[in-house]
Design a protein around this nucleic acid. Structure first.
Lengths: 226, 226
DNA sequence: TGCAGGTCTGCAAGAGTGTTCAGCTTTTTT
DNA sequence: AAAAAAGCTGAACACTCTTGCAGACCTGCA
């Protein structure tokens, strides 16, 4: 089994995970600036330093001066990164149990990382959440806007914090301080938030709008107690 | 199964194939110029016309004005294009966390305790299952008999082994060796098993019937991966 | 015959992106 | 305590990339 030369710092591991997450979720690698947004780094050079470090340590490759050309080689833990051919990995893998915070509301205008009112904490195994789901939290659904997609009032939804989401995915968004769940579609310079309820109208958000809008991230799971 | 609206021309199919090939071999989508090189098209607009056509016909999506953001949706022949993958895992742990067996089928005529084919094990915290949930196992739902209750094909349902169930509850039952999910209603000396799908008829089971019927227990939770 | 759609050239504007420089603070190592 | 590494800001620059416009040729179809 191949292994990388040196270990990563905590932060570098996070960077690498965010890249892998972006590729899996969005379908292609991020740009330096997109990476910066996801990591809360304002300067492109701040991100670049991380990428240089990851390259130097052998966890990542890039093509010079080309956009979106970064490719992970190893996971932060040293496991080889695979992309196309995934296998029945014969290796056992200790299942991680995640302690997920359930929040009632999200403060308006706050960065995505700032969440109020942890109402309870629930435990759920990695097997149900999917691969490398780190920044996941849970919300209780209010309202019936997604009943046709089988998401009901009172359901727990598990959301991964990630601003960049693939088209057509179910996402949690924050509009004027209210957190809601909708399907997201990009249409030119605006975004359509489509409820799964024939009785409700889609919401349109323009890029240049004054509205307090923020994509929290994709919904990765739904749980309903019966 | 979803299908694209219109068919592609020969050339458009080639373009789409080249894109898919690039993603597979290089790891990320090409730019318009790179596509042009691969196709022998000198003008970026020539390529762009193809991309527009592919988008219009629903075979491809792009983000506006961003590089390398094209994503195939269908193959030229109309087959859905897949890219993401799931991995599952198992191992022990201990706490207030339940290791729940996920079974594919239940053997006909066997006592409820005898279950075959543990396909995987998922972990879930007590907080989501409810109180004193000891004999709980999980099933993957097959079919659409409960879509109106928000239980879809492929969902995990958590069932507590318990023969006595309150009226109107969603239960897992075994009929002639097949495990299904229905709502249970007692009506005199018979039992009505009501699907939550307008297109399906309820099943009636009489107490004196020869049918191999057995109530496994109430469904205490539903989980759906997204 | 006319017309729509597919395919392509060439050009130019403007947004997007990677790179680099100078400098800063904090953490880790020596 | 000093030095090195990690982590980051802000700005500037050149190049890449998408998009749009104008125009061309071809084919199938009404």
């Amino acid at each position: 089994m191949m292994k990388p030369e040196a270990k990563l710092t905590k932060r570098q591991g996070t960077v690498l995970e965010v890249i892998a997450q972006h590729i899996e979720e969005v379908g292609y690698p991020p740009t330096i600036r997109e990476l910066g947004d996801a990591l809360g780094i304002r300067s492109t050079n701040g991100v670049n330093d991380h990428l240089k470090a990851l390259e130097k340590k052998g966890y990542l490759t890039r093509e010079d001066a080309k956009s979106r050309t970064m490719r992970p080689i190893f996971w932060p833990d040293g496991t080889p990164y695979e992309q196309g051919a995934n296998s029945d990995s014969t290796e056992d893998y200790d299942e991680e149990i995640h302690q997920v915070r359930v929040v009632g509301r999200i403060a308006a205008g706050m960065p995505v990382t700032a969440i109020e009112q942890t109402e309870e904490i629930v435990a759920i195994g990695q097997g149900l959440l999917g691969r490398q789901q780190k920044d996941v939290f849970a919300l209780r659904v209010k309202g019936e806007s997604m009943i046709e997609d089988g998401i009901f009032d009172g359901d727990y939804i598990f959301v991964r914090k990630q601003a960049d989401v693939r088209d057509g995915k179910i996402v949690a968004v924050m509009i004027d301080g209210e957190a809601t769940v909708k399907r997201l579609f990009r249409e030119g310079n605006r975004v359509r938030l489509e409820p799964a309820n024939a009785a409700m109208e889609p919401i349109f958000v323009h890029a240049d709008e004054a509205r307090e809008t923020m994509i929290i991230g994709p919904v990765v799971g739904v749980y309903r107690r019966l």
